[in-house]
Amino acid sequence: MAIHCSETAPLVQSCLDGELTDAEERALCDHVSQCGVCRKRMSREERFRDAIREHLAPPSAPDRFHEQLTHALAEEERAEVRARRHAQLSWALPGAATVAAAVALLVFATDRLAPANDQAPLTHEAASRVIGSSPVVVQEDHRDMSRSLNDYLRVPIRPPRFSDDNVELYGWRPSHLHGRQAAELVYRVFRSEGRQYTMRLHLLESSNIDLRSQDRREIGGQTIWVDSPLGMSSVTYQDRQGIGYVFISDMPQHDLVDLVLGSDLAQTHDDDSIRGRTASQGQ
């Protein structure tokens, strides 16, 4: 399998990176042994690669940092334990508000379904939509934003509002999911101890799109899907008008689910109440 000089570039890089098959490596070696130009090139590339690897050899993590991380993980574990205790207490408390919280707990208690496959295409795509996005359009007036969204998506739509005061709508930008036009709303979520998260909500006309992801949760006859694509948290929901809501955030999963359950998606589409139906059924 003789090769030509013009073909050696991909082979040289891949050979030095250990990516060639035995046959390809043999063919390259045969060529290089007979071609001075390619031999020189390969030798130069190899020396450069070796030099770069030597110069870039990174330092190890300092011992102090190991300890710091261990403490941080212990704190994270304590926070998780506190959250569980809080949830158990809420379950026991009476009152209408608690009924809704109790239903939310039921949601959490839903058995984790074995994923149909490893991929959760839509949430995966949304979570990886980081590079190449156009700039965020910041609009102070939410009515203006609703108008812009309606004009852009050509469907009647209003951004959901959240009962949590620590959620701030920052702006939106055009987006595409599954080849369909979508709008990506960007929220900032403020939490205690100066923690700040970003929540992105992709809105799109989603009829005939499979919104399923890892965990299916049934709430008052409605279904939401919860997942953790690329280490992010996601919640997807489709209303009866076929509008898909894909929430992606770096905040903990249970926090994101709570936020979505606390939104006014119920008021936006009365027939599609998530929280509304849940609460009324619980009462």
Binding site: A9, P10, V37
Partner: peptide
């Protein structure tokens, strides 16, 4: 290296 100019680096294509 004149061979460097216009090199393809797509191993799949190769």
């Amino acid at each position: 290296d004149s061979a460097d100019a216009g090199d393809t680096i797509d191993l799949d294509a190769y």
